[in-house]
Amino acid sequence: MTGAIRHGAAGRLWRTTVITLPYAWLLLFFLVPFAIVFKISFADPIVAQPPFTPFFDWAESSPRRLLATFDNYLFLLEDKLYWVSYLRSIRIAFISTLLCLLLGYPMAYGIARARPPWRSLLLMLVILPFWTSFLLRVYAWIVMLGKHGVVNNALLSVGFIDGPLQMLYTDAAVYLGIVYTYIPFMILPLYASLEKLDQNLHDAAMDLGATPWKVFTDITLPLSMPGVIAGSLLVFIPALGEFVIPSLLGGIDSLMIGRTLYDEFFVNRDWPLASAVATVLLFILILPIMLFQRYQQGEES
């Protein structure tokens, strides 16, 4: 760290510029917006442009009246729709994360144990889909799972089933979509921590009498925990607020909070309630996001 260096005036100016520009940008376009969301979540919806009451009533000069209301939050508590959305989101995100882990761990382990020239190729194959459109990859599953989709056609022609299965617009399709689009985020940190693992630890455990399965549970798994945690958070957090996947692959009743928020905002045009939904979602996410940040900083040092 160069904190101790004494710069001249010009050096200080450059330093200030480097720090201030991104700082100011993020303050204005990242942090302030959250404050506004928070503020509006206490407003009342009105039919106007913009469709909510101001926080302070500027017109009435003195004394300034605080127009905050907890109605939106109370409504969230009362209406079952929101409860169900939050809980379902958490459940779907959690199960998807677990599925990602189940498929991603052996894949990451296999890549980490492959010979070096293979390793980079396989790793590239994991990252590659990420560069193609996310939306189109989700759409691909509509083609796959539809009533006359590829999977149904294949099963019908083989004779496994008599009529098409309802696969699209189900929760299973949502799980599939989430696992499909987010699995690179699981594999990459897992690979990073598995690749770092010293083969000698594995050999030492085996030498001391541990069978391959025991070596895995005693040594490999605990030592790859940072990768497991990072990967799980990288899947869980965005999956929790996912909007596209439940909208395209989920049924009408498959409510996830991202979709509920979107509908509240665009369909019902209730901005204050949408803000309250977002605020609560953010509070749910604070813990995992802080965990993730701590992990990131741990990696840096």
């Binding site: 990288l234 977002a278 996410l285």
Partner: peptide, 16 residues
Amino acid sequence: PLVMPEVITGLSLLLL
């Protein structure tokens, strides 16, 4: 921003 759900980022920016 790396992990923030898009709906939140989108909503907050619009309100800004």
